[in-house]
Simulated scan of single mutants.
Amino acid sequence: MTSTPQFPPLFEGMELTGMTDPFAKAQLQATVGCDAGLVVYNMAADQLRAAIVFAPEVGLEQAMPVLVCCAIGFQNALGALAPPEVGVHLDWNGGLYVNGASCGRIQVAASTHDSGEDPDWMVVGLELPLLPIDPNTPGNAPDQTCLFEEGCVDIASEDLLSAWVRHTLVWINRMEDSGLKPLHDEWRGLAKNVGEDVSFSIGDTHYEGVFVGVDEHFGMLLRDGNETRLIPLSTLLQGAA
């Protein structure tokens, strides 16, 4: 067990304390100017929050699969550290699921929301509950869980954070070397609700239909009756650019 996270070369950590949000802090650092590879993190007793700054060199929609690399990176990291019976799956809109119950999320922000522009920066954030919201009333929210309730109490936050960054880097390198096919192949085995009816909201917009799959850049293909619509992955971008 390490006392601080250990990151790959070219990644640098920035630890936060108190209630400071790493996702917001990483966006601020990216806006004022910082190197890609900055990992901002806040490891509280009850939750792990972290964010990675990226500097894409392609257009927005082509850059968005970085979000998928981070999601798969988390699944691989927790899968390597957790007991073998722990299953981790990924929701298209960033939700993380452990043994079938909601357990945190991946979120994304970028310097632009314009699909015709190359973003100056992109930030992907992780939020992961470690302890129950209310330990005195276990089972009150059976659709939500935390690492403690899933037998992962021995996983140190710093080890999981280190593994997340490391596995994410592996997938980014694979994407750059081999294109998107390996990413699609891995994601397909981890994705929730493909082929099923889904209903969710992003901001003020509600979506529902059959989740039939994704396009090349992981935009959702949602069928409603005889019509299939594309919801670009950039729809998940947080905040105002």
Rank of each mutant, 00 (worst) to 15 (best):
L147F: 07
L147C: 00
L147E: 04
F148D: 13
F148G: 08
E149L: 10
E150M: 09
E150Y: 05
G151H: 03
C152Q: 06
V153L: 14
I155E: 10
I155F: 10
A156E: 15
A156Q: 15
S157R: 09
E158T: 12
L161I: 00
L161K: 07
L161A: 06
S162N: 04
S162H: 01
S162I: 01
A163V: 00
A163F: 03
A163T: 01
W164H: 07
W164M: 08
W164R: 01
R166D: 09
R166V: 09
R166E: 12
R166T: 12
H167M: 11
T168H: 13
L169Y: 07
W171L: 10
I172V: 12
I172C: 14
N173T: 13
N173S: 14
N173F: 09
M175D: 00
E176K: 13
D177L: 15
D177Y: 13
S178Y: 15
G179K: 15
G179A: 14
K181P: 04
K181T: 09
P182Y: 08
P182G: 02
L183H: 01
D185N: 10
D185Y: 11
D185M: 11
D185F: 12
D185P: 07
R188S: 04
R188D: 01
G189K: 11
L190F: 08
L190C: 15
A191H: 03
A191F: 00
A191I: 10
K192H: 06
K192T: 11
N193R: 15
V194I: 11
V194E: 04
G195L: 07
E196V: 08
D197N: 13
D197Y: 14
V198F: 03
V198E: 09
V198H: 03
F200Y: 07
F200H: 02
F200C: 00
I202N: 02
I202P: 03
G203N: 00
G203K: 04
G203C: 03
G203Q: 03
D204G: 06
T205Y: 08
